[in-house]
Design a binder for these strands. Structure first.
Lengths: 136, 136
DNA sequence: GTATCTGCAAAACATTTGCAATTCT
DNA sequence: AGAATTGCAAATGTTTTGCAGATAC
């Protein structure tokens, strides 16, 4: 997605597309690497003159609030961010730390205890060993 | 489960069943309320003379390491603990904050991207509105 | 008696907040 | 000009760590 498209996308979701926001969104959309705020800051601080961590946090919180980005609780000590807001789960490899997406069918949750519950946000994370690390 | 049973249970899992550990495990097993470390501390500090938060954390970390308790990433800013180590998910109500268990079948994951992956720990959390809050 | 456990205080760490300066339209 | 955004420094809140004293078996 081009930056001009991202500008439109943010604008359509009620987010003023100021430069730093566009750059951060562009990073999320093009890398698709489920980064932490720290990772985004470290990658962009050289590219964006005078970027601060506060702005990264402000921007990510705005994106989450306006629902163009999901915050992921994959690990307890850090929040990761994902611009893919379609329903999917995340697998994190204990060996290499890589995060992989996977799909699941929520219709297979059939528990009477959730009768008449309104299910809103799904967070499905699995950890283990990925196929690459498993070969060794 | 009686405290004597809990003593045996801890011992069988390689955990020396000292008094404070038995009390903390007993709390988790009898309440089944997915508490935070803070909640456990506040509930037990009156019952156990001179309990400290450090001991609560030490004990919970030991329980997680020895796999008699699961640490839950339901919310990003706090870890919750569950002595029910069977596979199940957690629903948290946005209104009342109550956490409910639900069962799921891991067959709902059908994704070729996880072929040859070793799936170890499952964390499935949903939030939304529970049936009680939804009536109002 | 020796290894383990405990608790205090301090440290670590990610994230949030207050507020003054800057920037955008 | 006026409102929104930014960034610094300080605050917050949870969890961890170092270490000396207490306790368990």
């Amino acid at each position: 997605m081009k930056e001009i498209k991202i500008k439109d996308y943010l604008f359509e979701h009620g987010i003023r597309p100021v430069n730093k926001r566009v750059k951060i969104m562009n990073y999320l959309v093009s890398k698709r690497n489920h980064p932490t705020a720290e990772m985004i800051y470290l990658e962009l601080v050289n590219e964006i003159a005078g970027l601060s961590k506060t702005t990264v946090y402000n921007t990510l919180n705005l994106f989450v609030q306006e629902e163009v980005v999901h915050a992921l609780n994959i690990e307890s000590n850090e929040l990761r961010y994902d611009a893919d807001i379609s329903q999917h789960g995340h697998f994190k490899c204990k060996e290499c730390g890589e995060v992989y997406d996977f799909s699941f069918n929520k219709d297979l949750i059939q528990d009477l205890r959730l009768k008449n519950f309104v299910l809103k946000d799904f967070q499905f994370s699995i950890n283990g060993i990925c196929s690459i690390c498993h070969q060794h």
